[in-house]
Every structure is written in C-alpha cells, then in structure tokens.
Design a protein around this nucleic acid. Structure first.
Lengths: 340, 340
DNA sequence: TTGAAAGCGCTAACAA
DNA sequence: TTGTTAGCGCTTTCAA
C-alpha cells in the first residue's frame, strides 16, 4: 500500500496567493508574453518563492506531451559492456537536455522482445519519441516503429527501402582515411585484424579497409578473432606472414592490448617497428604505451543530429527522409610509425 | 506548435467494447482478484486484443506514483568517461526493471546545481525516488534530500551523523584482501601507485592498503599521479626504489597500461618478475598481457540493494537507518606472481 | 490582458 | 462482484 506522498504546491495555491486565476499562473510559465510586465514579475517572484513547478503528469495528461525520449538500452554482454554506451549516453543526455528533454532508459523485461517493450512505451504514452541503437540491418523494431508512425530515430543504419530515420558514423570512409594515413607514412604492407561478429558497423569498417587498400595500392592480409583468447595468437600469426606487414589495423580498440602483446612477443616495438591503429577512441587507448592511433566518433554531433531529427518528427509529424552519415576523426598518436 | 498526437485506446474504449464499466477494466489490471474469473478472462483478452495500456500520465496523476527512479548522472570529464557508469547503469536498469521501475537520466542544466536539478524533479513530481552516485563526503545534495524527506539512496557513502541511505563497496577491505593475497604469494615489498584526486573511494582504497601492509607486516612505498602523462615515470620511479618491490598495487585499473609499460621499460616482465594489481575490473583488464588481477565490484548486488532501499523509502516512507557495505571480489589473473 | 469552464484518462472511495 | 461519482493538476478554448 504505497503511502500517499503529500503533494506539493499546486497552481491553485499560487493563484490564490497572487490573487489571480490559475490561468494567469499557467501563462506566466508557458506564455509569459501574454501577461502585463508587472503581473508577470509579481507572479514569477511568487512562483520562485513558493517553489512551484507544474506537476509533470498533469501537464502531460493535458497537453499530450511528455518531454521524454525513451532509449531502449541494448542488452549488454556483461563480459563486454559496451563502454561506448556511456559516452554515447553522455552525449545524448546533454543534447536532449538542451532541448528540454530527458532520457528514459527502457529495457525489455526478460523474455520480452524489444519491439514489445516499445509497444508498451507507445501505448502507455510514456515518451514523445524513441531512440534506438545497435540495430541490425533488418531489425523488426524499425519496421514496427515506422508502421506506428511514432517518432523515432536510430543511431546506426537501416537498409535501403526502409525508413531512413538514422544517424551513423561513416565508418568505411574513416577506415579509408586511416589506410590513407598509413600510406602517406610510407606503409605498403598492412594487415587487418577484425572481430568475426556479423555486426553492420564492423562490416562497414572492413569494407572501408578493403577499398582503402585498393585505392592506395597496398598489399596485406585479413584475419578475424572470435573471442578474447584468440587475439594474441591470431595477431602473431598475422605479423609472421611474409613479407611482414609494417602496420596492423584493428577494427576495434578493444583488440589493441592483445595486438601490443603480440608485437612484443614477436620482438617488435609498436610505434617503432610496427604501426597499430584502432577504432572508437576508447579512453584507455591514450594510456597504452605507445598511445594508440584510432578513430574518434563525433558522439556529440551524432547526439545533436538524433535529437534534432527526433524533435522534428515530434513537432512536424514528419519523419526525416534521409539518413545522415557523419565523419569519424582519425586521431594520430605515437602508435603510428613512418616507414622509409 | 506541437502536433496533437492522436491518443490511443482509452479505458473507456475497452469498457464500451466489453460492455462493462471503466472501473472493471481498471481492476482487471490493478486488482485482478476483485473480478469474477470469467469477467477477468474476457476483459483481459479484450485488453490484449485492443492493445490497451493505461496512460502513464493519467495513472500517475491519479495515483501519485510514477514508477520512475531519477538518476542524476555525474558530469563526466570527456577525457575520462567513467567507464564504470555503463556497468552500474546496466545493473540499475536491470534491478529497477525487475521491480517495475525505470531509470530517468537527469542532468543539471548548465550553471544549475545538482541540488537545484533535484528540486525540480521533486517539485514537478517527475519521479518517485532519486538515486545519487559520485557524492562527496559533505555533498549538499544529500542534506537537501534528507530535509525534503523525499525517498533517495546513494551509491557511495555519507559521513557519520548524516543520512545513511547509502550502499557502497567495502574498498578498504577489498584492498586488505588484495594485500593478503600478495602476502600469501610470498610478496614482502609492495608498492602502491594511486591517483591524487581527493575522492572518497580512492582514499578508502589507500587506507585499506596501509592497514593491509601493517597487518601482514609488509614494507613498501606509495606514490601518486596527477594525470595521464605522469603514470609511466612515477611507476618507474617506484620500481627503482631499493630494495625493489616485487608487486605494484594500483588504486584503479586505468593505471595498468602505464604500469605495464613502466615494468617493460625497467626490463621487468609483469606476471613473472613483477605482480601488478588493479581495482574495478574494467573490461579491458582481461585483455592486457598478462591479464590483470583486480577487484570486481558487485554491481548487481549494489543495484539490488539500492533499489530495495529506494522502494522501502517509497512504500514505507521510512528511510533506511544504516549504510550497507558490500564486499568486492578479488579476481586472480596472471599478473599475480609467486615469490619464493 | 485576465478569468471561467471543460476535460485530458485514470483510480480511490463508495454505493448498489 | 460491479458500477457510479468525483477529482488528481493542468492547459485549451472561449468569454469577458
């Protein structure tokens, strides 16, 4: 039996204290220009003094708007918490906050599909818009949301012929740039170490690597790891191909400690005999010795773009017509080397 | 001018379709035992079929309960995003979800104090309870929340003589255990590398280290770094004291890559000539070569405890009387060595 | 520029 | 066991 929490000051209380109608108080907050300056000032002072804030629920019920963006948090493998999430969320909270929105974390209950959780959010009018990330190419959530017409946006990509309410990093181009950077540092033999999971963003990076290699006329090999334990062995194997590569491109920063260990085991010094590059600019990459050259995702710009699309959908009722691809920024650090 | 989003099916619609009153529909959802089985079944089927979900705002307005926990996200230094946050949030979302609550991320607006942001949450009746983390010992938010009587809980600690609605890791004990572990592996000379920031949890770890050193009769030195760039130099200096320490205890995993590099620069092999231990069990510690011995925080148990305290406050109106200290789990990995 | 009336969708309290 | 009534606090609409 939840105790009935004492309710705070209501619009009525303030109105009585000010000797005006409730409507005047409401206007002071929602449409200040409608009040005479002196009334406005008096009322505003009183609102501040009494600590009045409109009740969120009442306001939402009446106006039909919640000022909340629901974000379905991807279920993270506890072994590999998506460290990126904290940076992305961070950016989303900031971007949404500036627009007067807050982020509500929604997790499907055990056994419940993500689409079903979203259905709950929509039907219960919990949020004004929904944000998705970590979607697969044919994710049913995207179609479901599109059908309902509910405002949503995706961090990631959706295939052609599907709703294009997404914002993503141009991973392929970033990878091409990285290969170009290696080429301009004199590298000719470059190996690629990737993660074997069939995740869209990983495949885009790989594709970018291949394009870059062709474009800059470089030679190399690719190898993929399935899990933590394989990293060092597979990297060593890659470093032993002949002719030996002078650079090792990783599809994710998380592989870097393994790559560094492999180099050491092969008697190579990263940053001198071997260049290594990563992807994502995780915080710890700057602490590796030598610090890792990698690609930084423009999280804040991504978040801003997502929020602006979301709000456009909410306010105009029109979903965005095209996806938005933002450039990643290569970050040059000492793990890069120059080859004569 | 926000478009008036079409409202979905209401309780009225379902009631009409079922030929019963609204109250019966409400009861089917909130107090099923009050209905005759056949009525319940009929109504439930109809609810499912029509996709009816009670409007969150209307429900909240009427019942005074929001089923939301507000979490003020600490403002993260973009240079050092608290990678822990994602793991903690993850656990909180899961724990709260099981209790039927969701997490709302609240960030003070620029220039706004955290206490002020909390005041907004309370006055606007946005949430049923508030969760704080990263509080300092004399954090004004804690006193403010205590005075208001609003349900809240803290991940971290508050000083004696202050509200005790907190759950924390017993960092000191974990550190003592770690030193004990080193002692039992034959180590006699152990160095401590810490972060100089005056954060409570770091000071607890340091205190635990000292207690452990005394208790096990070990000798050693302490040194502190102020930033990223100092790590390797300070660690090398520590390794050069004579007699040379056989183990290096870090107050946080983030120092580990620097410690490994320092060892290498000194011609030492971590896991053979030198033991290194960390704190927090960040995901990448398992990828270091050798994988790092560290302390895992029981995030899920912390989250469960926080949620249960929060709900107790909400439901009984009684704040918890004592803090709860949970044990951290030392995780033994190959960076530990045995000394003859 | 201000005020009065209506009602958003729901559930608590009570009546049948 | 079910239905009726009232009203949570606010904003929209319309009238003064």
């Amino acid at each position: 039996m939840p105790a009935q929490r004492p309710r705070g000051v209501s619009i009525q209380d303030v109105a009585r204290a000010a000797g005006v109608s409730r409507q005047t108080i409401s206007n002071a907050i929602n449409a200040p220009h409608k009040l005479r300056p002196d009334t406005l000032e008096r009322v505003t002072a009183l609102i501040e003094e009494m600590g009045y804030r409109p009740d969120q629920s009442a306001r939402s019920l009446r106006s039909g708007t919640r000022r909340i963006i629901a974000y379905t948090t991807p279920e993270t493998d506890p072994d590999n918490p998506n460290a990126l999430m904290s940076g992305f969320l961070e950016a989303m909270v900031a971007a949404a906050g500036e627009a007067g929105y807050r982020i509500l974390l929604v997790r499907p209950r055990p056994g419940q599909s993500r689409a079903r959780a979203l259905e709950d959010v929509i039907a219960a009018r919990t949020a004004d818009a929904i944000l998705l990330s970590d979607v697969l190419e044919d994710d049913p959530c995207v179609d479901y949301l599109h059908e309902t017409g509910f405002p949503f946006a995706v961090f990631g990509r959706t295939g052609p012929g599907r709703p294009q309410a997404w914002v993503d990093v141009d991973s392929a181009q970033a990878m091409i740039d990285l290969v170009g950077l290696l080429s301009s540092h004199g590298h000719r033999r470059v190996a690629y170490l990737g993660t074997s999971a069939a995740l869209p963003w990983l495949r885009h990076r790989e594709a970018g690597f291949r394009i870059g290699m062709r474009r800059f006329g470089l030679a190399g090999h690719e190898a993929f790891v399935d899990g933590l334990d394989e990293v060092v062995a597979v990297a060593r194997d890659l470093l032993n191909r002949s002719p030996r590569p002078t650079a090792l491109v990783l599809d994710d920063d998380w592989l870097a400690p393994g790559a560094y260990a492999a180099a050491q085991a092969e008697g190579l010094t990263v940053g001198a005999d071997l260049a290594v590059t990563g992807f994502n600019d995780m915080p710890y990459t700057r602490l590796l010795q030598p610090p890792l050259t990698t690609v930084r995702l423009p999280l804040r710009r991504i978040a801003d773009a997502l929020v602006s699309r979301l709000l456009q959908s909410v306010e105009e009722g029109e979903p965005p017509e095209a996806g938005l691809l933002l450039a990643g920024d290569p970050v040059l650090r000492p793990s890069m080397t120059t080859v004569e």
